[in-house]
Write a protein that binds this DNA or RNA. Structure first.
Lengths: 206, 206
DNA sequence: GGCAGATCCTAACACTTGTTAGTTTTGTTT
DNA sequence: AAACAAAACTAACAAGTGTTAGGATCTGCC
């Protein structure tokens, strides 16, 4: 009863069903904008224009420019973390685990390009304490990936390679898909995924 | 005679020996600044402060904020291109060529971190026509790298992999060293270079 | 010592930034 | 039709932007 009341009050204050929708539209448009002009170079007036509204009107749905950035960065971070948790719980061999993770990263880069790109490149502009929070999550995520690799080495399932360097290499390689997105060339998405997985997994095999 | 005159006039107009030195100092400080705040978020007043001078005084040595960015981006681009030309001319086998190039990229990332980082991440802010120019050089550079790989495949010296994807993977992986730089951890530069080369080269071997 | 030129400074410019206040329009409910 | 809330608008704010003008100061050379 009390809980319901608080919940309702919260919903009513922060967002109703309708401006939740509008808020999402704003964030979506913002993602596209931030991706190709950068967060710093995108003004609220720019954003307002693509949304089809006056700049001041945006503040009926969001609280600040950086709230948009926070929403994007943490949405992406959460998706990666919860996927990782599922993989960690699975009983598969190390190489298969890594392939699953690599494919997930590649698909995220293909299907949620704007969001992932911003989370990768514009997190610097997060205000504290969100910045520290984000970096902690990131560090923890990479650490856990490194643990998977280390575990695989100890079990003699994969080649002996510095886990940190392997993770750095894999994640960076995938985030480079950004530059493929920027200029859709002859190479198809499928070719890209197949070949990149091949390259990155082959380098881990014994 | 005429050539010399033009050369002299140019030198005198753009920079004398003395403000060339000062100009270089400004660019060096700017590189550090741009790297950790981003080009857009760095103001000329910020730059002036680290140089130890008033903002307006900078304009005795440079012509505009974006001239600094141009200087950095094209300096880096030229270094990579001329190194590539040397490798192209060499008679070595494909795998050795690729290792040379990979090592050069890694060392540039280790030794000229600020410059390379900015060239990698802040080129968007170049004004036209420099932007198009830069992107053309970049595309051409990657194309030539791809040709080396394609040639190696035809000669049966390396594994059959999509050249474009291989290049994308290699370059992106290396540019990820940025995040190692950002937080000097337990891993040494040597370990990093050794392991990354191992990973990236192993994935090319037959 | 004094001239010349390089380099600095202060002040200001025109403009853009994110955001707020106050008001009017819009759309739904009674 | 009246009333209410949601969401749009106009106008403005304080602060910060890159850059220029004009004058002061410093430096090295005759």
């Amino acid at each position: 009863m009390l809980v319901l009341f608080i919940f309702d009050a919260c919903m009513a204050k922060i967002q109703s069903k309708k401006n939740s929708t509008k808020k999402e539209i704003i964030i979506e448009k913002a993602a596209k904008l931030f991706r190709d002009k950068g967060f710093g170079a995108s003004s609220m007036r720019d954003l307002a224009e693509v949304v089809g509204v006056e700049a001041a009107s945006l503040y009926n749905h969001i609280q600040s420019k950086s709230e948009i950035l926070q929403a994007i960065c943490f949405k992406v971070a959460n998706e990666f973390i919860s996927h990782l948790e599922a993989v960690e719980r699975s009983p598969e061999p190390t190489l298969k685990k890594m392939e699953t993770i690599i494919r997930f990263h590649i698909r995220m880069m293909l299907e949620q390009y704007e969001y992932v790109y911003i989370s990768d490149h514009e997190w610097r502009h997060l205000p504290e304490p969100y910045l520290s929070n984000f970096l902690n999550q990131r560090r923890s995520y990479r650490k856990r990936l490194g643990d998977i690799i280390e575990n695989g080495i100890q079990k003699n399932e994969i080649k002996n390679i510095e886990p940190y360097v392997a993770i750095l290499t894999i994640l960076s390689a995938i985030s480079g898909i950004e530059s493929w997105q920027r200029s859709r060339k002859s190479t198809s998405a499928e070719t890209l995924e197949t070949n990149m997985v091949k390259y990155l997994i082959e380098g881990l095999k014994k």
